[in-house]
Design a protein around this nucleic acid. Sequence first.
DNA 1: CTTTTAATTAACATTATGTTAATTGTTAAT
DNA 2: ATTAACAATTAACATAATGTTAATTAAAAG
Lengths: 258, 258
Amino acid sequence: MKSNKEEKPYDVSRYRTPDGYTSDIAVFTITSEKTKAYAPPKMELKLMLIKRAQQDTEGNLNIEPGKWALPGGFVTPEETAMEAASRELEEETGIAGIHLKHFGVYDEPGRDPRGWIISNAHYAIVPEHRLFERKAHDDAAEVELFPVQDLEQHLLAFDHASIIRHAITHITRDLLQTTVAKQFLPELFTYSELQAVLLTITDDKSIQNEQAFARKIKTLPFIEAVEGQKTQRTSKLPTQLYRFIDAEVKQSIYTARH
Amino acid sequence: MKSNKEEKPYDVSRYRTPDGYTSDIAVFTITSEKTKAYAPPKMELKLMLIKRAQQDTEGNLNIEPGKWALPGGFVTPEETAMEAASRELEEETGIAGIHLKHFGVYDEPGRDPRGWIISNAHYAIVPEHRLFERKAHDDAAEVELFPVQDLEQHLLAFDHASIIRHAITHITRDLLQTTVAKQFLPELFTYSELQAVLLTITDDKSIQNEQAFARKIKTLPFIEAVEGQKTQRTSKLPTQLYRFIDAEVKQSIYTARH
DNA sequence: CTTTTAATTAACATTATGTTAATTGTTAAT
DNA sequence: ATTAACAATTAACATAATGTTAATTAAAAG
């Protein structure tokens, strides 16, 4: 904030102020399908949306009814938008303590017919198994997981189509350029499980190639093999387990291979 | 926004609303110092800050006077925060049409003593030569460029110390992982000029090494050599000029070298 | 004519990758 | 007991990229 010429100190009443500040959440999960025993799973990235009801619980007509929308709600003055996201997510789905990341603000005039409402958007990563906790809580809205590919065809509320496109762009970039893939995986995982996560959002040849990827994972500075820990969940042959370690990742496009 | 149980449609008056929505801008420039003729310049990344006045032009006491702060101001309902950033930047410095990027929102309760004020933060890149246009406009506040290293020691307004740390983190990452370095350079540039820009924020060995970097630039898919275009501004030997081309850059930490 | 210097090229050992093939350890069927 | 199946792992090797050191080039400046 600069000291604006028209500004009187401590008096903000002269400005028109926003009619609301909301927090929206793009909830991603990866569903795993076991095609058979002792084989790596097929994975698919999905986004959770809720269907807006015709009317709220007080019987009032709802805005944008019947359309699919991101979960979210109004932020209160006692919390940050990220705290609100966490709270809303728990109210909506019963899931607490999950990974959240801010990725954008939506403040285009007219984006919300109710007034000047600013949306602070986050994406969340929920491991598939934690979604089972959800069932008990979905008392209100219709909730559904959509594969990220076929989202375009659905009728979305407000400017959520645009927000969702950005969310997918951001999570895709973060999966490739940060260690956030960790959030989709168990503490210990095999090379093929990590590979399956990455292949939900990329067709990179070096990641598709099993031999190359299995060789590469051993040299990554932010992943370590866990001595003596093996699993048979992806193959009959007991397979090495890995874990992410805290290591700064800063990769330059000017030194990387292309 | 979900259809909250307590929500009446089209009636937002029941919620407490923010007292203000501001747009702040971390204005970066790289200053070039020519140590001698026919040699690459020494470059340094700097951040522009303004010193908050004791009182505004109406003679009222100002808030957080004497502290250094990011330029910025209140967003109006007819514009986005980015448009406000662009407008404020022009009002403040007379510079129009420069590169802006959103990097965060600051909404911690109590961050601004004037009330519930949400800051939407951007960084801006201004080529050094465009700062000369500034002189005429700095009618009001004291403006100064600070090397990004020694910012910690200055007294900063509000939570701007924190915002500035994030701004530096983001521009550093973007310089290495996107082609935004383009914004600091002329249309055509030599390998040593690009190298000098990158070395303002990294000590990566492969970028420091001249031979390696000069060899590498020729293979980067997002940069092309401009046929027959050479310059002598960095050396006596006429030097090849390059330009950025539009090419999607998506680099994975799982395939890159470490 | 000589020195100076950034850019460029050369050379070569080292390391990483792409690719194809073989080996391993286990399950499950015969 | 033997064998087929198969994901993981290792091996092998040609190709490509990188790190490093050194030589060459072209122009300026004395």
